[in-house]
């Protein structure tokens, strides 16, 4: 969909740039100044959460930008809080994001393979319909989803409201349309001759798909997996509608619950500790897969 070039968000190593000769700094010092200002804007909330999480007094009134002390009391309180099963939330978030991302990547890859490699009636119309459908985010149909799943819960309890499987299913509704265009574009760049050679050798379509195509498109699969993992991990609206039981909630819903009501000031230290721990999986993914995610960004996934 996009025509943007893949940006390079990793540290720049342009070959054409020589070591700056002495004296250049005099001309660009103001750029350093502005960059540092921007940097302060970018990181002060992060510094603040870290300070609040490590603050021995875990209330909001005692919080400050820079750390005033060092204590892990907030983390201990959080993990032992009987009213807030933080570890369960963490597990739910990881399980739901992992399974939803795995399934949706696989479903997307299957569809993209067909749309890229096979010619059949309804192919063009199908691709268009998928593109059109993407204009309408699933969350707009939340009333229909909510009522449908409260009925499903009556019929097949493990897939109803307040279940991990239920919310995973909701996220999988858009699995096919969400990434098929991005995936198909990449599948198209894998030479067809490889398939044809395998076909001549008597390999079945399934064998070609699983042993040749999927291996050659691994980079885009990683990108799609990561973006959907990040998306599901941070999804709030549907999770907050579907998961009302403390034990079924995800980090997003659980942490939100800690910041509403009168207890939020006293719970602030625990909340900051929880926020810090919740940020770890995604931040780690970004550091490790910076390049793939940056590539995925320009292809139409927006945060």
């Amino acid at each position: 969909m996009s025509t943007a070039a893949v940006p390079d968000a990793t540290p720049e190593r342009s070959p054409g740039v020589q070591q700056d000769p002495a004296g250049t700094f005099g001309k660009v010092w103001w750029k350093h100044l502005l960059a540092i200002l921007a940097l302060l804007f970018a990181i002060f909330p992060i510094v603040f959460v870290i300070s609040a999480a490590l603050n021995p007094a875990g209330t909001m009134s005692a919080s400050s930008l820079l750390p005033r002390g060092f204590s892990l009391a907030n983390f201990r309180d959080l993990l032992q809080d009987p009213a807030r099963p933080f570890l369960t939330w963490y597990k739910n978030s990881l399980v739901i994001s992992l399974l939803a991302a795995l399934f949706s990547t696989f479903i997307g890859a299957c569809s993209a393979y067909v749309f890229s490699r096979m010619r059949f009636r309804g192919r063009r119309a199908g691709l268009m319909a998928l593109l059109l459908l993407q204009m309408f985010p699933a969350l707009l149909a939340f009333v229909g989803l909510y009522i449908t799943f409260s009925k499903i819960g009556e019929i097949v309890p493990p897939f109803g409201l307040n279940t991990s499987w239920g919310i995973i299913l909701v996220y999988l509704g858009g699995a096919m349309g969400g990434s098929v265009w991005l995936l198909k574009g990449y599948f198209d760049t894998v030479p067809k001759e490889l398939d044809e050679a395998a076909l001549v050798d008597g390999a079945s379509h399934a064998r070609i798909f699983f042993t040749i195509t999927l291996r050659l498109v691994t980079p885009i699969l990683v990108t799609v997996f990561m973006t959907s993992f990040v998306g599901v991990f941070g999804e709030f609206m549907l999770a907050s509608i579907f998961l009302t039981n403390a034990d079924a909630q995800t980090l997003a819903v659980g942490l939100y619950g800690m910041t509403v009501g009168n207890t939020k000031f006293a719970l602030f230290g625990e909340f900051a500790a929880g926020a810090l721990l919740s940020a770890i999986p995604i931040a780690a993914l970004y550091l490790v897969f910076q390049k793939q995610l940056a590539g995925g960004l320009t292809q139409g996934s927006v945060k």
Partner: peptide, 24 residues
């Protein structure tokens, strides 16, 4: 053959994306 690859996604899409829209 194409349907073998499309069916799971198609069922999920019809049941969990299009149906909720229609129902809404």
């Amino acid at each position: 053959v194409p349907m073998k690859y499309l069916l799971p996604g198609l069922i999920l899409m019809l049941g969990l994306q299009i149906w909720p829209i229609v129902y809404t």
